[in-house]
Simulated scan of single mutants.
Amino acid sequence: MTMELGSQRLKGRVAFVSGGLRGIGLACVERFLAEGAEVVLSDLDAADSEAATSVLARLGQAASYVSANVAREEDWERAVAMVKERHGKCHVLVNNAGIDLTGPVESLSMEGWRRIMSINVDGVFLGTKHFVPMMAESGKDFRGGSSIINVSSIMGLVGMNEVSAYNASKGAVRLFTKGIAIEFCQKKTPIRANSLHPGFVETPLLKAGFQRWVDQGFAEKPDDLVAGVVASTPIGRLAQPAELASAAFFLASEDSSYMTGAELVIDGGWTAQ
């Protein structure tokens, strides 16, 4: 999967990335732009917020932004309308926005359970539902068609202590992706769908999660948890967001034209043990 950065392999394509202001989402936006795509990104931040305006100023005119809550259907309808008005097409959808929830199952609140499912699962469903008509039409432009990339996790493949809600949400993303992939094939809809399964990635979400574990008494400081994860990962380090963006670029490009319903695991060997 070694590819030359900035090879313009996505020239002529339009991509939408949810959760695009930070972490893996932002890295995907940057990589897609470097490869010649036009990108619309969304996040919860207001369009005139410092986070959104500073990122857009750095990304340039090929990027645009829409504030959206992925758990709200009307926000997806508005996002699709914006993409259609601005570009008239969409070839790549990265359903990346997500949150985590940890703790013993008996301590989890129904409110917390519903919230993680609404963002991690409903958000993927709604993004897919509303972008499919435009992506089906746009998919006729390129070999392999359009590409839906749903960001799951290694926690969608294996269980982990006190991560049951996150496990459930990311496992749902994995199987939803397989279901729509077969559906598109059966209907001869020119859209591929694959799931991306990151391991431990150095992102704001991971840092926030580790801080909560420290607050709950699992460790004295986040660095202790990082050290534990690094020690349990065969490659011996955390992943960088750009490494996940490279995998997303592969799934977005024609190089993965025969790939659908698959899960791409980028975890430094963590689940191979």
Rank of each mutant, 00 (worst) to 15 (best):
D75I: 07
W76L: 07
E77G: 14
R78V: 04
V80Q: 02
A81V: 04
V83L: 02
K89Y: 02
C90A: 09
H91C: 01
V92F: 08
L93M: 06
G98A: 08
G98H: 00
L101V: 04
G103K: 10
G103F: 03
P104S: 14
V105K: 14
V105C: 15
S107M: 07
S109P: 09
M110V: 03
G112D: 12
W113T: 03
W113F: 11
R115V: 00
I116L: 15
I116D: 14
M117S: 07
S118A: 14
N120Y: 02
N120D: 07
D122E: 14
F125M: 08
L126Q: 05
G127S: 05
T128Y: 15
T128I: 09
K129R: 14
H130F: 09
H130I: 04
H130W: 10
H130Y: 11
V132G: 01
M134G: 02
E137F: 03
S138K: 14
G139V: 00
D141T: 01
F142P: 13
R143D: 11
G145L: 10
G145K: 05
S146R: 00
S147I: 05
I149V: 10
I149W: 13
N150L: 05
S153E: 06
S153A: 10
S153H: 11
I154P: 11
G156Q: 08
V158M: 15
V158C: 14
G159K: 13
M160S: 14
M160D: 13
M160V: 05
N161F: 07
N161H: 09
N161G: 07
V163T: 06
V163L: 13
Y166T: 00
N167W: 04
A168N: 02
